[in-house]
Design a protein around this nucleic acid. Structure first.
Lengths: 223, 223
DNA sequence: ATATGCATGTCGTAA
DNA sequence: TTACGACGTGCATAT
Protein backbone atom coordinates (compact mmCIF):
# COMPACT_ATOMS: atom_id res chain seq x y z
CA UNK A 1 0.00 0.00 0.00
CA UNK A 2 1.20 3.47 -0.88
CA UNK A 3 0.29 6.43 1.28
CA UNK A 4 0.84 10.01 0.15
CA UNK A 5 0.39 13.27 2.03
CA UNK A 6 0.06 16.07 -0.48
CA UNK A 7 -1.51 19.31 -1.49
CA UNK A 8 -3.42 18.38 -4.62
CA UNK A 9 -6.30 19.09 -6.99
CA UNK A 10 -8.62 16.27 -8.04
CA UNK A 11 -10.51 15.77 -11.29
CA UNK A 12 -12.96 12.91 -11.70
CA UNK A 13 -15.07 11.94 -14.69
CA UNK A 14 -17.12 8.80 -15.03
CA UNK A 15 -20.60 7.88 -13.83
CA UNK A 16 -20.64 11.46 -12.57
CA UNK A 17 -18.05 14.26 -12.73
CA UNK A 18 -16.35 16.30 -10.03
CA UNK A 19 -13.71 18.90 -9.33
CA UNK A 20 -11.88 19.52 -6.09
CA UNK A 21 -9.69 22.62 -5.64
CA UNK A 22 -6.27 22.63 -3.99
CA UNK A 23 -5.87 21.38 -0.42
CA UNK A 24 -4.04 18.89 1.77
CA UNK A 25 -5.24 15.29 1.61
CA UNK A 26 -4.22 11.74 2.45
CA UNK A 27 -4.05 9.43 -0.56
CA UNK A 28 -4.04 5.65 -0.21
CA UNK A 29 -3.37 3.35 -3.15
CA UNK A 30 -3.89 -0.38 -2.60
CA UNK A 31 -2.31 -3.24 -4.56
CA UNK A 32 -5.78 -4.29 -5.79
CA UNK A 33 -6.17 -0.93 -7.53
CA UNK A 34 -8.37 0.72 -4.92
CA UNK A 35 -7.58 4.43 -4.72
CA UNK A 36 -8.73 6.65 -1.86
CA UNK A 37 -8.48 10.40 -1.35
CA UNK A 38 -9.36 11.54 2.15
CA UNK A 39 -9.96 15.05 3.39
CA UNK A 40 -9.62 15.70 7.12
CA UNK A 41 -13.33 15.08 7.74
CA UNK A 42 -15.91 12.33 7.25
CA UNK A 43 -15.68 8.59 7.01
CA UNK A 44 -16.01 8.63 3.23
CA UNK A 45 -13.23 9.44 0.77
CA UNK A 46 -13.95 12.66 -1.13
CA UNK A 47 -12.88 10.88 -4.33
CA UNK A 48 -11.92 7.32 -5.02
CA UNK A 49 -11.49 4.51 -7.50
CA UNK A 50 -12.67 0.94 -6.81
CA UNK A 51 -10.59 -2.28 -6.91
CA UNK A 52 -9.43 -3.26 -10.38
CA UNK A 53 -8.46 0.23 -11.44
CA UNK A 54 -5.04 0.87 -12.99
CA UNK A 55 -2.85 3.66 -11.68
CA UNK A 56 0.14 5.46 -13.19
CA UNK A 57 2.19 8.57 -12.49
CA UNK A 58 2.37 11.15 -15.29
CA UNK A 59 4.91 13.94 -15.32
CA UNK A 60 3.31 17.13 -16.63
CA UNK A 61 3.93 20.61 -15.17
CA UNK A 62 3.08 18.90 -11.90
CA UNK A 63 3.24 15.15 -11.31
CA UNK A 64 -0.26 13.66 -11.72
CA UNK A 65 -1.56 10.37 -10.36
CA UNK A 66 -3.95 8.93 -12.93
CA UNK A 67 -6.23 6.05 -12.02
CA UNK A 68 -8.43 4.51 -14.69
CA UNK A 69 -11.28 2.06 -14.43
CA UNK A 70 -12.85 0.38 -17.46
CA UNK A 71 -16.48 -0.72 -17.40
CA UNK A 72 -17.67 1.75 -16.61
CA UNK A 73 -14.95 4.01 -17.93
CA UNK A 74 -13.93 6.29 -15.08
CA UNK A 75 -10.92 8.54 -14.77
CA UNK A 76 -9.45 10.02 -11.62
CA UNK A 77 -6.61 12.52 -11.83
CA UNK A 78 -4.75 13.81 -8.81
CA UNK A 79 -2.58 16.80 -9.60
CA UNK A 80 0.17 16.90 -6.99
CA UNK A 81 1.08 20.51 -6.17
CA UNK A 82 3.24 19.66 -3.19
CA UNK A 83 4.15 16.26 -1.83
CA UNK A 84 4.88 16.14 1.92
CA UNK A 85 5.36 12.42 2.32
CA UNK A 86 5.29 9.21 0.31
CA UNK A 87 5.54 5.82 1.94
CA UNK A 88 5.29 2.23 0.82
CA UNK A 89 3.93 -0.39 3.19
CA UNK A 90 4.34 -4.04 2.26
CA UNK A 91 1.36 -5.21 4.30
CA UNK A 92 1.05 -8.92 5.09
CA UNK A 93 -2.46 -9.89 6.06
CA UNK A 94 -4.09 -13.31 5.89
CA UNK A 95 -7.03 -12.61 8.18
CA UNK A 96 -10.64 -11.97 7.30
CA UNK A 97 -13.24 -10.15 9.31
CA UNK A 98 -15.55 -12.30 11.45
CA UNK A 99 -18.76 -10.38 11.89
CA UNK A 100 -21.92 -11.17 13.82
CA UNK A 101 -25.28 -9.46 14.15
CA UNK A 102 -26.22 -9.57 10.47
CA UNK A 103 -29.56 -10.16 8.81
CA UNK A 104 -28.26 -13.54 7.60
CA UNK A 105 -27.96 -14.59 11.25
CA UNK A 106 -31.51 -13.49 11.97
CA UNK A 107 -32.55 -15.90 9.21
CA UNK A 108 -30.49 -18.74 10.68
CA UNK A 109 -32.06 -18.08 14.07
CA UNK A 110 -35.58 -18.25 12.63
CA UNK A 111 -34.85 -21.58 10.91
CA UNK A 112 -33.53 -22.92 14.24
CA UNK A 113 -36.38 -21.52 16.34
CA UNK A 114 -39.37 -20.78 14.08
CA UNK A 115 -41.60 -20.30 17.14
CA UNK A 116 -39.91 -16.89 17.50
CA UNK A 117 -42.25 -15.85 14.69
CA UNK A 118 -45.31 -17.65 16.00
CA UNK A 119 -46.36 -21.12 17.22
CA UNK A 120 -46.69 -23.49 14.28
CA UNK A 121 -44.70 -21.38 11.81
CA UNK A 122 -42.73 -23.53 9.34
CA UNK A 123 -39.95 -21.83 7.35
CA UNK A 124 -39.55 -23.46 3.92
CA UNK A 125 -37.30 -21.34 1.71
CA UNK A 126 -34.49 -18.84 2.24
CA UNK A 127 -33.75 -16.14 -0.37
CA UNK A 128 -36.53 -17.49 -2.58
CA UNK A 129 -36.79 -15.89 -6.00
CA UNK A 130 -40.37 -14.99 -6.90
CA UNK A 131 -41.91 -13.00 -9.71
CA UNK A 132 -40.93 -9.55 -8.49
CA UNK A 133 -37.87 -10.00 -6.31
CA UNK A 134 -36.31 -12.30 -3.75
CA UNK A 135 -38.12 -13.15 -0.51
CA UNK A 136 -35.99 -13.40 2.67
CA UNK A 137 -37.93 -16.33 4.14
CA UNK A 138 -40.99 -18.06 2.72
CA UNK A 139 -42.94 -20.46 4.96
CA UNK A 140 -46.36 -21.61 6.09
CA UNK A 141 -48.41 -20.95 9.22
CA UNK A 142 -50.45 -23.50 11.17
CA UNK A 143 -53.54 -22.67 9.06
CA UNK A 144 -51.74 -23.41 5.80
CA UNK A 145 -51.29 -19.81 4.70
CA UNK A 146 -48.16 -18.86 2.82
CA UNK A 147 -46.10 -16.52 4.99
CA UNK A 148 -43.53 -14.05 3.65
CA UNK A 149 -40.95 -12.75 6.12
CA UNK A 150 -38.97 -9.60 5.41
CA UNK A 151 -36.04 -9.30 7.80
CA UNK A 152 -34.25 -6.11 8.84
CA UNK A 153 -31.27 -6.05 11.20
CA UNK A 154 -32.10 -2.51 12.27
CA UNK A 155 -35.21 -0.33 12.65
CA UNK A 156 -37.39 -0.97 9.59
CA UNK A 157 -38.35 1.97 7.39
CA UNK A 158 -40.96 2.63 4.69
CA UNK A 159 -38.63 0.99 2.21
CA UNK A 160 -38.87 -2.35 4.05
CA UNK A 161 -42.68 -2.27 4.04
CA UNK A 162 -42.67 -1.53 0.30
CA UNK A 163 -40.46 -4.55 -0.25
CA UNK A 164 -42.71 -6.82 1.81
CA UNK A 165 -45.81 -5.51 0.05
CA UNK A 166 -44.27 -6.18 -3.34
CA UNK A 167 -43.56 -9.81 -2.43
CA UNK A 168 -46.98 -10.40 -0.84
CA UNK A 169 -48.79 -8.98 -3.88
CA UNK A 170 -46.72 -11.10 -6.28
CA UNK A 171 -47.51 -14.25 -4.30
CA UNK A 172 -51.21 -13.41 -3.94
CA UNK A 173 -51.47 -13.11 -7.70
CA UNK A 174 -50.16 -16.64 -8.02
CA UNK A 175 -51.52 -18.37 -4.91
CA UNK A 176 -54.66 -16.43 -4.04
CA UNK A 177 -55.45 -14.59 -0.83
CA UNK A 178 -54.00 -17.03 1.70
CA UNK A 179 -50.76 -15.09 1.87
CA UNK A 180 -49.52 -13.22 4.94
CA UNK A 181 -46.62 -10.79 5.17
CA UNK A 182 -44.60 -10.26 8.33
CA UNK A 183 -41.91 -7.65 8.83
CA UNK A 184 -39.31 -8.94 11.29
CA UNK A 185 -37.07 -6.28 12.84
CA UNK A 186 -35.98 -4.78 16.16
CA UNK A 187 -38.36 -1.85 15.65
CA UNK A 188 -40.34 0.21 13.13
CA UNK A 189 -40.36 3.87 12.11
CA UNK A 190 -43.65 5.73 12.51
CA UNK A 191 -44.24 5.81 8.75
CA UNK A 192 -43.42 2.14 8.34
CA UNK A 193 -45.97 1.27 11.04
CA UNK A 194 -48.64 3.41 9.37
CA UNK A 195 -48.17 1.79 5.93
CA UNK A 196 -47.85 -1.71 7.40
CA UNK A 197 -51.15 -1.45 9.24
CA UNK A 198 -52.93 0.13 6.30
CA UNK A 199 -51.85 -2.81 4.14
CA UNK A 200 -52.87 -5.47 6.64
CA UNK A 201 -49.27 -6.62 7.06
CA UNK A 202 -47.80 -7.73 10.37
CA UNK A 203 -44.79 -7.06 12.58
CA UNK A 204 -42.69 -9.31 14.83
CA UNK A 205 -40.01 -7.77 17.00
CA UNK A 206 -36.67 -9.58 16.72
CA UNK A 207 -33.12 -8.37 17.38
CA UNK A 208 -30.24 -9.65 15.23
CA UNK A 209 -28.36 -12.15 17.42
CA UNK A 210 -24.72 -11.58 18.32
CA UNK A 211 -23.23 -15.03 18.22
CA UNK A 212 -19.77 -16.25 19.11
CA UNK A 213 -17.20 -16.20 16.33
CA UNK A 214 -19.34 -15.91 13.25
CA UNK A 215 -16.84 -16.36 10.44
CA UNK A 216 -17.26 -14.95 6.94
CA UNK A 217 -19.47 -17.09 4.73
CA UNK A 218 -19.94 -20.12 6.89
CA UNK A 219 -21.02 -20.45 10.46
CA UNK A 220 -18.69 -22.18 12.93
CA UNK A 221 -19.59 -24.16 16.04
CA UNK A 222 -21.98 -22.49 18.43
CA UNK A 223 -21.46 -22.59 22.20
CA UNK B 1 -4.65 13.44 10.50
CA UNK B 2 -2.73 10.56 12.01
CA UNK B 3 -1.66 7.62 9.88
CA UNK B 4 -0.33 4.40 11.38
CA UNK B 5 1.13 1.34 9.70
CA UNK B 6 0.91 -1.57 12.11
CA UNK B 7 0.32 -5.23 12.69
CA UNK B 8 -2.80 -5.25 14.80
CA UNK B 9 -5.91 -7.10 15.97
CA UNK B 10 -9.27 -5.36 15.88
CA UNK B 11 -12.30 -5.78 18.13
CA UNK B 12 -15.56 -4.01 17.38
CA UNK B 13 -18.83 -4.06 19.28
CA UNK B 14 -21.83 -1.86 18.60
CA UNK B 15 -24.66 -2.13 16.11
CA UNK B 16 -22.96 -5.40 15.15
CA UNK B 17 -19.84 -7.10 16.50
CA UNK B 18 -16.65 -8.27 14.81
CA UNK B 19 -13.22 -9.70 15.36
CA UNK B 20 -10.21 -9.42 13.09
CA UNK B 21 -7.07 -11.49 13.73
CA UNK B 22 -3.51 -10.18 13.46
CA UNK B 23 -2.30 -8.62 10.23
CA UNK B 24 -0.77 -5.49 8.69
CA UNK B 25 -3.15 -2.56 8.14
CA UNK B 26 -3.20 1.16 7.51
CA UNK B 27 -5.00 3.16 10.19
CA UNK B 28 -6.20 6.72 9.60
CA UNK B 29 -7.53 8.90 12.40
CA UNK B 30 -9.09 12.22 11.43
CA UNK B 31 -9.47 15.31 13.62
CA UNK B 32 -13.29 14.99 13.40
CA UNK B 33 -13.09 11.57 15.11
CA UNK B 34 -13.42 9.45 11.98
CA UNK B 35 -11.36 6.28 12.37
CA UNK B 36 -10.50 4.00 9.45
CA UNK B 37 -8.77 0.64 9.32
CA UNK B 38 -7.79 -0.50 5.84
CA UNK B 39 -6.60 -3.89 4.71
CA UNK B 40 -4.71 -4.11 1.43
CA UNK B 41 -7.89 -4.82 -0.55
CA UNK B 42 -11.27 -3.21 -1.27
CA UNK B 43 -12.45 0.37 -1.23
CA UNK B 44 -14.15 -0.07 2.13
CA UNK B 45 -12.38 0.00 5.51
CA UNK B 46 -12.55 -3.40 7.25
CA UNK B 47 -13.44 -1.61 10.47
CA UNK B 48 -14.17 2.02 11.22
CA UNK B 49 -15.73 4.59 13.47
CA UNK B 50 -17.72 7.57 12.14
CA UNK B 51 -17.10 11.30 12.78
CA UNK B 52 -17.75 12.38 16.37
CA UNK B 53 -16.06 9.38 17.96
CA UNK B 54 -13.50 9.89 20.72
CA UNK B 55 -10.14 8.16 20.52
CA UNK B 56 -7.51 7.42 23.18
CA UNK B 57 -4.37 5.31 23.48
CA UNK B 58 -4.36 2.77 26.33
CA UNK B 59 -1.20 1.05 27.48
CA UNK B 60 -1.94 -2.58 28.31
CA UNK B 61 0.37 -5.50 27.44
CA UNK B 62 0.25 -3.96 23.98
CA UNK B 63 -0.71 -0.39 23.24
CA UNK B 64 -4.40 -0.23 22.22
CA UNK B 65 -6.17 2.47 20.26
CA UNK B 66 -9.69 2.77 21.64
CA UNK B 67 -12.32 4.72 19.74
CA UNK B 68 -15.74 5.20 21.29
CA UNK B 69 -18.95 6.50 19.83
CA UNK B 70 -22.02 7.26 21.95
CA UNK B 71 -25.52 7.03 20.46
CA UNK B 72 -25.37 4.41 19.42
CA UNK B 73 -22.73 3.14 21.83
CA UNK B 74 -19.98 1.57 19.71
CA UNK B 75 -16.49 0.56 20.70
CA UNK B 76 -13.53 -0.08 18.44
CA UNK B 77 -10.30 -1.44 19.88
CA UNK B 78 -7.12 -1.76 17.85
CA UNK B 79 -4.50 -3.84 19.61
CA UNK B 80 -1.14 -2.79 18.22
CA UNK B 81 1.22 -5.76 18.05
CA UNK B 82 3.89 -4.01 16.04
CA UNK B 83 3.98 -0.41 14.87
CA UNK B 84 5.95 0.23 11.68
CA UNK B 85 5.19 3.91 11.22
CA UNK B 86 3.26 6.73 12.83
CA UNK B 87 2.89 10.10 11.20
CA UNK B 88 0.98 13.28 11.87
CA UNK B 89 -0.23 15.41 8.97
CA UNK B 90 -1.52 18.90 9.74
CA UNK B 91 -3.72 19.08 6.64
CA UNK B 92 -5.00 22.48 5.54
CA UNK B 93 -8.01 22.21 3.26
CA UNK B 94 -10.67 24.81 2.55
CA UNK B 95 -12.09 23.27 -0.61
CA UNK B 96 -15.31 21.35 -1.08
CA UNK B 97 -16.15 18.87 -3.80
CA UNK B 98 -18.10 20.22 -6.77
CA UNK B 99 -20.01 17.30 -8.26
CA UNK B 100 -22.26 17.12 -11.28
CA UNK B 101 -24.43 14.39 -12.74
CA UNK B 102 -26.66 13.92 -9.70
CA UNK B 103 -30.35 13.20 -9.41
CA UNK B 104 -30.84 16.73 -8.03
CA UNK B 105 -29.60 18.07 -11.38
CA UNK B 106 -32.03 15.84 -13.27
CA UNK B 107 -34.76 17.54 -11.26
CA UNK B 108 -33.44 21.02 -12.07
CA UNK B 109 -33.33 20.09 -15.74
CA UNK B 110 -36.95 18.92 -15.69
CA UNK B 111 -38.10 22.16 -14.07
CA UNK B 112 -36.23 24.09 -16.75
CA UNK B 113 -37.42 21.95 -19.67
CA UNK B 114 -40.59 20.06 -18.61
CA UNK B 115 -41.22 19.06 -22.23
CA UNK B 116 -38.43 16.48 -21.71
CA UNK B 117 -41.12 14.50 -19.88
CA UNK B 118 -43.91 15.22 -22.36
CA UNK B 119 -45.57 18.16 -24.11
CA UNK B 120 -47.75 20.06 -21.65
CA UNK B 121 -46.21 18.62 -18.50
CA UNK B 122 -46.16 21.14 -15.62
CA UNK B 123 -43.91 20.37 -12.64
CA UNK B 124 -45.39 21.80 -9.42
CA UNK B 125 -43.52 20.44 -6.38
CA UNK B 126 -40.03 19.12 -5.68
CA UNK B 127 -39.39 16.66 -2.81
CA UNK B 128 -43.08 16.83 -1.89
CA UNK B 129 -44.02 14.99 1.31
CA UNK B 130 -47.13 12.85 0.88
CA UNK B 131 -48.80 10.25 3.05
CA UNK B 132 -46.30 7.45 2.52
CA UNK B 133 -43.02 9.08 1.60
CA UNK B 134 -41.52 11.95 -0.36
CA UNK B 135 -42.19 12.35 -4.09
CA UNK B 136 -39.28 13.55 -6.27
CA UNK B 137 -41.43 15.72 -8.55
CA UNK B 138 -45.20 16.17 -8.47
CA UNK B 139 -46.88 17.87 -11.42
CA UNK B 140 -49.82 17.85 -13.81
CA UNK B 141 -50.21 16.73 -17.40
CA UNK B 142 -52.13 18.53 -20.14
CA UNK B 143 -55.29 16.53 -19.28
CA UNK B 144 -55.21 17.64 -15.65
CA UNK B 145 -53.95 14.35 -14.22
CA UNK B 146 -51.63 14.42 -11.25
CA UNK B 147 -48.22 13.10 -12.34
CA UNK B 148 -45.64 11.60 -10.00
CA UNK B 149 -42.06 11.45 -11.25
CA UNK B 150 -39.51 9.16 -9.63
CA UNK B 151 -35.98 10.05 -10.77
CA UNK B 152 -32.96 7.78 -10.87
CA UNK B 153 -29.51 8.94 -11.96
CA UNK B 154 -28.61 5.41 -13.00
CA UNK B 155 -30.37 2.33 -14.34
CA UNK B 156 -33.59 1.95 -12.36
CA UNK B 157 -34.19 -1.29 -10.45
CA UNK B 158 -37.21 -3.01 -8.87
CA UNK B 159 -36.66 -0.84 -5.83
CA UNK B 160 -37.39 2.33 -7.85
CA UNK B 161 -40.63 0.91 -9.24
CA UNK B 162 -41.74 -0.03 -5.71
CA UNK B 163 -41.13 3.53 -4.60
CA UNK B 164 -43.09 4.99 -7.49
CA UNK B 165 -45.94 2.54 -6.93
CA UNK B 166 -46.11 3.49 -3.24
CA UNK B 167 -46.42 7.19 -4.10
CA UNK B 168 -48.99 6.66 -6.85
CA UNK B 169 -51.16 4.48 -4.61
CA UNK B 170 -51.00 7.02 -1.78
CA UNK B 171 -52.07 9.83 -4.11
CA UNK B 172 -54.81 7.77 -5.76
CA UNK B 173 -56.33 7.13 -2.34
CA UNK B 174 -56.56 10.87 -1.82
CA UNK B 175 -57.20 12.23 -5.32
CA UNK B 176 -58.90 9.37 -7.15
CA UNK B 177 -57.77 7.62 -10.28
CA UNK B 178 -56.43 10.57 -12.26
CA UNK B 179 -52.88 9.92 -11.08
CA UNK B 180 -50.04 8.81 -13.35
CA UNK B 181 -46.62 7.58 -12.32
CA UNK B 182 -43.52 8.00 -14.47
CA UNK B 183 -40.11 6.53 -13.77
CA UNK B 184 -37.41 8.82 -15.20
CA UNK B 185 -33.98 7.23 -15.62
CA UNK B 186 -31.29 6.44 -18.21
CA UNK B 187 -32.52 2.82 -18.40
CA UNK B 188 -34.42 0.04 -16.63
CA UNK B 189 -33.54 -3.44 -15.44
CA UNK B 190 -35.57 -6.30 -16.87
CA UNK B 191 -37.43 -6.84 -13.60
CA UNK B 192 -38.16 -3.15 -13.19
CA UNK B 193 -39.67 -3.05 -16.68
CA UNK B 194 -41.84 -6.09 -15.97
CA UNK B 195 -43.27 -4.65 -12.73
CA UNK B 196 -43.68 -1.18 -14.21
CA UNK B 197 -45.75 -2.45 -17.12
CA UNK B 198 -47.80 -4.76 -14.94
CA UNK B 199 -48.70 -1.79 -12.74
CA UNK B 200 -49.59 0.53 -15.62
CA UNK B 201 -46.75 2.88 -14.76
CA UNK B 202 -44.64 4.66 -17.37
CA UNK B 203 -41.01 5.25 -18.27
CA UNK B 204 -39.15 8.23 -19.73
CA UNK B 205 -35.51 7.89 -20.66
CA UNK B 206 -33.35 10.71 -19.29
CA UNK B 207 -29.63 10.89 -18.54
CA UNK B 208 -28.38 12.93 -15.59
CA UNK B 209 -26.81 16.07 -17.09
CA UNK B 210 -23.14 16.87 -16.51
CA UNK B 211 -23.08 20.60 -16.09
CA UNK B 212 -20.18 23.01 -15.74
CA UNK B 213 -18.97 23.63 -12.22
CA UNK B 214 -21.88 22.45 -10.14
CA UNK B 215 -20.92 23.53 -6.62
CA UNK B 216 -22.14 21.83 -3.47
CA UNK B 217 -25.61 22.91 -2.38
CA UNK B 218 -26.21 25.74 -4.78
CA UNK B 219 -25.94 25.92 -8.52
CA UNK B 220 -23.64 28.50 -10.08
CA UNK B 221 -23.94 30.22 -13.44
CA UNK B 222 -24.47 27.97 -16.42
CA UNK B 223 -22.68 28.51 -19.69
C1' DA C 1 -22.46 -9.46 -17.46
C1' DT C 2 -27.04 -8.39 -15.31
C1' DA C 3 -30.13 -8.30 -11.49
C1' DT C 4 -31.23 -8.05 -6.80
C1' DG C 5 -30.73 -6.69 -1.97
C1' DC C 6 -27.73 -6.05 2.41
C1' DA C 7 -24.72 -2.71 4.91
C1' DT C 8 -21.85 -1.45 11.80
C1' DG C 9 -23.84 1.30 5.23
C1' DT C 10 -22.71 7.04 5.30
C1' DC C 11 -24.56 11.40 4.38
C1' DG C 12 -27.73 15.35 3.76
C1' DT C 13 -32.17 17.41 4.63
C1' DA C 14 -36.56 18.45 6.57
C1' DA C 15 -39.98 18.15 10.11
C1' DT D 1 -33.80 13.49 17.23
C1' DT D 2 -36.34 10.87 13.85
C1' DA D 3 -37.60 9.86 9.20
C1' DC D 4 -36.67 9.39 4.58
C1' DG D 5 -34.10 8.66 0.47
C1' DA D 6 -29.68 9.40 -2.48
C1' DC D 7 -25.05 7.64 -3.26
C1' DG D 8 -19.82 8.03 -8.66
C1' DT D 9 -22.94 4.09 -3.09
C1' DG D 10 -19.70 -0.80 -2.44
C1' DC D 11 -20.27 -5.58 -2.06
C1' DA D 12 -21.75 -10.45 -2.30
C1' DT D 13 -24.59 -13.65 -4.58
C1' DA D 14 -27.36 -15.93 -8.03
C1' DT D 15 -28.61 -16.44 -12.82
Amino acid sequence: MITVFARCRVHYDGRAKSELGPGDRVIVIKPDGSFLIHQSKKREPVNWQPPGSRVRLELRENPVLVSIRRKPRETLEVELEEVYMVSLFRAEDYEELALTGSEAEMAELIFERPELIEPGFKPLFREKQIKHGIVDILGRDSSGNLVVLELKRRRAELHAVSQLKRYVEALREEHGNGVRGILVAPSLTSGAKRLLEEEGLEFRKLEPPKRDRKSRGRQTTLV
